[in-house]
Amino acid sequence: MISNTFENVKKIYKKHAKIINIVLIILLLIIPRLMPNSYLMGIVCRILMYATLAGSLNIINGYSGQFNIGHAGFFLIGAYTEAILATTYGWSFWPAMIIAGIVTSIVGFLVSLPTLRLRGIYLAIVTLGFSEIIRIIALNWTDVTGGPMGIKGIPSPELFGFRISGPVDYYYIFLIVGILFLFITNRILKSRVGRSWISIREDELAAKSLGVEANRAKSANFMYGAFWAGIVGATYAPYYKFIASDMFTLDEGFNILAMVIIGGQGTLIGPFVGASIATLISEVFRFASQYRMVIYAILIIVMMWWRPQGLVGAYDSILAGDDKSLKKRKKSITQKVGDN
């Protein structure tokens, strides 16, 4: 039922894409005027930020079928790179952001390197380990990262001499980053490059037999996803003005992963839905992060049981499982395994 609704919405959207996009963008632009409450704007900012961050993870997990579960590590690298460049070296925000993206994507390349020839599970473990290691390094390399004290007083960005501070201003930065991300990613996905990623997700052997250089495409895909994680990290650092290693734990990585899985893998809108749901849940359980994580965990399991591709994920993909109906699947197990 959900997929039908989603399909219909998609059809309507496709018909009037231009008009809807323009209306959406105008709406998004005037939201701060309609809602001048800075608490609410803070939530909206978080949703936008996490939507892009989850989107960058979705590039990797949802479109090329690789399995990255340590996305917090890339987020950390982006944030720290910007923060270090801005505080220690006095760089301005914009070049620092670009550098943060590039640095993160290079790190992404290095992380994906040892597992390219192996099954996906090894990449999962390497990313998980990487995420924890990079946090330990950030915690202990006091000279550069401030160690347990973190980095304080990260300067706000300036644009045409106008200082950007407070949720309402930041809203526009997150919005622009998000729109740029969607725009660029959409173009890539609809080209030869995106098609090669999806072909690897669907059937790597077939893709290779058609001359798709799977390892190269996977690396490029990983770098592209990591790049945006770095960009989001870089915008995150000056927004909170303070970063420390404990903001990038494995739980944060699972948090991002939960958004992608709950919202839906393999579609551009999925991570946005997931980020909205997750941020609202975390607002409700603001003072008890454990309860929040319990709810995420249950939602993840529920999704895997009944809707593996997520709420608005790509139902027409391997992400949705082989057998679309669960009953059929259960039956086939008992047939194969026998119920003796």
Binding site: R192, S199, A206, L210, V212
Partner: peptide
């Protein structure tokens, strides 16, 4: 080894990978 979740058209399009740049 088809891409089962893609249309015939999409399947064939991926075949052009090496002939495009």
């Amino acid at each position: 080894q088809l891409f089962k979740n893609m249309t015939v058209f999409e399947n064939v399009r991926i075949g052009f990978h090496i002939r495009t740049k």
